[in-house]
Design a protein around this nucleic acid. Sequence first.
DNA 1: GTGTTTTAATCTACTAGTAGGTAGATTAAC
DNA 2: GTTAATCTACCTACTAGTAGATTAAAACAC
Lengths: 195, 195
Amino acid sequence: MNTELSPKAAEIIAHTRSLLEAGSYNSFSYADISARVHISKASIHHHFPSKAELVRVVVARYRIEARAGMAVLNQQLADPLDALKAYVNYWSKCIKDGTSSFCICALLAAEMPTIPEEVAAEVQGHFEDLSTWLTSIFAKGVAEGKFHLKDSPAIEARGFMASVHGAMLAARGFGDPQAFETLAQLSINRLTLAN
Amino acid sequence: MNTELSPKAAEIIAHTRSLLEAGSYNSFSYADISARVHISKASIHHHFPSKAELVRVVVARYRIEARAGMAVLNQQLADPLDALKAYVNYWSKCIKDGTSSFCICALLAAEMPTIPEEVAAEVQGHFEDLSTWLTSIFAKGVAEGKFHLKDSPAIEARGFMASVHGAMLAARGFGDPQAFETLAQLSINRLTLAN
DNA sequence: GTGTTTTAATCTACTAGTAGGTAGATTAAC
DNA sequence: GTTAATCTACCTACTAGTAGATTAAAACAC
């Protein structure tokens, strides 16, 4: 599979991702992308035959980026707590500086019953990628005696993931971007401090 | 303010809520409601002048229901842990029997930047209602020596709320409705068990 | 109580605008 | 001279919303 993209295709993907991030699958149109990329709607169709395919590619590339990020954390941070802190800090920074304000897979997961199948499959794939990685980190933390968990690493990892996604939702729901960091930090603190 | 509704208006609201629940603000149209309620699109406009107003009313009534639910829990369950368990069980049951599969305010919060202002204000109102109630329950749990928290009741309450919303997201993301109960239970267990 | 007037609820028919997508020609690159 | 990228012009279906007529039930007058 070729992952190389023409500059315009890359631009289309970048803008689609940020439009998606702001709302939902149905909250933006080819006209919106057209206006931002300065290209006709027909030209977008030349690069991506349909909206479902465009969004599918956006999510597929998002997954590649995410997996690469997890691999980097695995390589650079031997300590499982440091890895989780780095993961959370990545999002804190993105939300703070406006790089990105929400995980597009979390957004799309919310509207799963109404999005095209091929997009839904990629979204579920990301949920599995992320929970698998978090499970391995949690298992490591337990094995090294660093984490004190009440349930299995797999369940705790999914719970952690849910808390992080919920923190993003809270930041938007309360209209307070800072809420993400505050709540994500809480999930981090719970891992080691015995009470 | 009159909260009485004609039967058709009530039907319109009920179907709008379930359509909203499945996806997003932009994932359904007046035509969808029209087909379900067996009424013309123009008649929907007679009851609710605009889509923004219709959804605003749906959310406003959802908030009334939610506040009534919290009041009932306050009256019937003196123990704060029982109250939280009842709150979580309410959603577990709804998700299991198909009554409701997602909090519409959590759904709308995800797409906050793209929904009409008046709807966003109601959504934020619900986030505040719910976190205020949860904070009072958490404070009670601490005062009675039943909960062992690492942070303030206000922060822990928001963290709990985020976990519950994240659990709903996980159920959809993994395509596994059971995931909600599993993850929500985890949040409940954390409140009392010392580790 | 009957006749009259309002009001609410519904309809068909329509509007302007937008959705995603296509046809076919033109231009630029290799 | 083929291929990729772009354009204008267009299509059909659908979007929220409106106009104006019709029906049926209340509300009021006498």
